[in-house]
């Protein structure tokens, strides 16, 4: 492992996920943009909605872990060391944050708060 090229990771992920990769990237970028626009429009965070989105995010994190276990043919007792816990936390965290942002934006654009 001498040199690293981020493009190679893109290629590998593309090979791994196929068209799903672009869908995920689209969802991530789209969700983030919608979230940012909502923030600007509402000039802040709506705490009540955020809590609901975070609750949904917990489910998203679990879902990400289930997906990961399924794709990698593993069970739930396979973690063997710190690197594994790191990966589990990473997958859970990405699922959580990703779905929280998407859910927050979705709720926000569906029923905007009137001020």
């Amino acid at each position: 492992m001498k040199e690293f090229d981020p493009l190679i990771f893109l290629v590998v992920f593309q090979e791994m996920l196929g068209p799903l990769l672009w869908l995920l990237i689209l969802l991530a970028v789209g969700g983030t943009l919608a979230f940012l626009r909502l923030l600007i429009k509402e000039k802040g965070i709506v705490a009540r909605r955020l809590v609901r989105a975070e609750l949904a995010g917990l489910g998203g994190g679990v879902l990400a872990l289930i997906l990961m276990a399924k794709v990698s043919s593993s069970g739930f007792t396979d973690a063997g060391g710190p690197a594994d816990w790191f990966l589990i936390a990473l997958v859970f965290g990405m699922g959580l944050i990703g779905s929280a942002i998407v859910v927050y934006s979705f709720l926000g654009w569906r029923t905007p708060v009137k001020r």
């Binding site: 593309q14 090979e15 794709v71 990698s72 043919s73 593993s74 973690a79 060391g81 690197a83 990966l87």
Partner: peptide
């Protein structure tokens, strides 16, 4: 991060998920 002689899930994940695309 990944100790070479440690039995790890992350290495299993590599074998089952990442190796073929690579």
């Amino acid at each position: 991060i990944i100790a070479p002689l440690e039995e790890l899930w992350i290495t299993w994940v590599m074998k089952t998920m990442a190796l073929k695309p690579t």
